[in-house]
Amino acid sequence: MQSFRKIKTILTPLDKVNVDTDQIVPKQFLKLVQKSGFGKFLFYNWRYDDHEHLKSDFILNDPKYKYSKILVAGDNFGCGSSREHAVWALLDYGISVVIAPSFADIFYSNCFKNGLLPITLDDETIEKLQREIGEVEVDLENQKIRTSSENISFDIDSHKKKILLEGLDDIAQTLLYEKKISEFEKHSKIPSVL
């Protein structure tokens, strides 16, 4: 998993609430056997018309946002199906940060298994960010978002922050303690639950 510390790009404002994982990656692309390459299917129905041509009225297709790595969206981002492909597609496309007033639980959790930073901010701040046209710096270590005029703080669970800073997913983290775990297991009294 890639580590995440700091990035500076312009924001892509996606003015939609309840962006569900089927909008992020439609079901027909879940059948691919490989794990990489989901980026081209990101927001497929919004990005392409029926003839697979890019739709000019969808924000991600605006050349201005081509190198943006930060997506700003509405409430309940990532709701719906638990497909982890949604996170894979965002990362593969080049998005490293999603900022929203709220996230769906499984999506939020999947972010930290793959190195995507989800940031929760209040509606007012999000609205301000949606209007931000210059480059914005997201600094995970100091939990700051720096715009041309403001310095916005954000909260993140310290353990989750560590995961992203070090690029170690849960399994890799757990394995750091492998010796201690095996030692503990030897003497464990935890009953097995039938």
């Binding site: 719906g80 199906s81 638990s82 982890e84 996170v87 499984i106 959790s109 999947n110 298994k113 793959n114 997913d169 849960d170 399994i171 639950v193 039938l194």
Partner: peptide
């Protein structure tokens, strides 16, 4: 029982009096 599945509607099975919830693929692998 504690029951987890690689699907968001795993919650269904809580109707049997179990703790049932969906997980992402990495969590299921773990």
């Amino acid at each position: 029982e504690v029951y987890v599945g690689g699907d968001s509607h795993t919650n269904t099975t809580g109707a049997l009096g179990s703790f049932a919830c969906g997980l992402g693929h990495t969590d299921v692998a773990y």
